[in-house]
Simulated assay, not measured.
Amino acid sequence: MSLTNTKSPPSKLCLLHHMVKGEIYDGLARVKRRLDGKTLQYVAKKNYAVPDTPACMKAIELVRDCSPEFLLNHGFRSYAFGVAMSHKVKKNYDKEVLFLGSIMHDLGLTKEHDHGGTFECDGAKSAYNFAISQGIEIPKAELIHEMVALHDSIGVAQAHEPEVALIHYGAGLDVAALWHKDIHPKTLTEIVTTYPRLDFAEAFILLLKDQLKRKPESYMKTLIELGFYEKMLAVNF
């Protein structure tokens, strides 16, 4: 697998193109769902329970040791939301891999895993090294790397492996309420109750502002210029 080791901020035109294209695609999928008489399925807590493997337990410990609680909970919610929206990928996926990539996807925002590059790629390197240290097979470790590196890549993540798409959907829902129409309301409420937001938007924005100040060409630059902070603050669940 070819790994993503650098990410430059996309142009506004390119990003807007991907966003509009995605909204049209998702809108058509929802219309088809209604026409087919299908409804969103409630997903119970047991379905997004943390996989009981040594690597998952160690990953939680790793993230907890270097992250504030609001960021740790964001990782848990991103995983749970991804599982709850697995109907969007229509493919089998590896729950352990999905959890490992989800819980570690923001490692690059922590002091210990900030190596001076755009945070997605910094975190991806740390997540890959962790996976290898836990005996995870190289193909799966590479997939975890790509989950972290591409989790916020609009128009790109959806076209990759299901685990990459699902962390993109899960994190996007949690950060900016994207795809909130693709999850059962009761499931969403239960996930947020289980893993409280803890003033997530305000705290996360401070981390991003620090990143942009120190790394003005970070990948998130374009999204923020297009009003991403305001979208985060408007989340009401």
Score class of each variant (00 low, 15 high):
G155K: 04
E161K: 15
K215E: 11
M19Y: 13
K12V: 12
H160M: 12
A29P: 01
L100N: 00
S67F: 01
P162E: 09
P54M: 10
F228Y: 10
L206T: 07
V148R: 01
L35Q: 11
Y169I: 14
H168N: 14
N236P: 00
N5M: 06
D114K: 10
D210V: 13
I103P: 06
P162I: 12
M147N: 00
Q134Y: 05
T4M: 05
C56S: 13
E69A: 14
V83H: 05
T53V: 09
R30I: 05
E163M: 05
G108K: 02
G170Y: 08
V20G: 01
G82Q: 05
H168K: 09
L233S: 04
C121R: 03
D94E: 09
M19C: 10
I24M: 06
K90M: 13
N5P: 00
K46L: 07
K125G: 04
A159Q: 14
M19D: 10
M57G: 12
V20Q: 05
C14V: 12
A29Q: 14
H168R: 13
M220P: 02
G155C: 00
I138A: 13
I183L: 13
A177I: 08
L143Q: 11
V89N: 04
L198R: 12
K7S: 00
T110C: 14
D114W: 05
S8C: 00
K111D: 02
R214E: 12
R77I: 04
R77Y: 01
I138D: 14
L72E: 04
S102G: 01
H87Q: 13
L98H: 04
I205M: 01
R77W: 05
L212E: 07
D199M: 09
S8L: 10
A44Q: 14
D36W: 07
D122S: 07
A149E: 12
L178D: 13
R34H: 13
Y48I: 03
R30S: 08
L100R: 01
S133W: 00
G123S: 01
R30E: 09
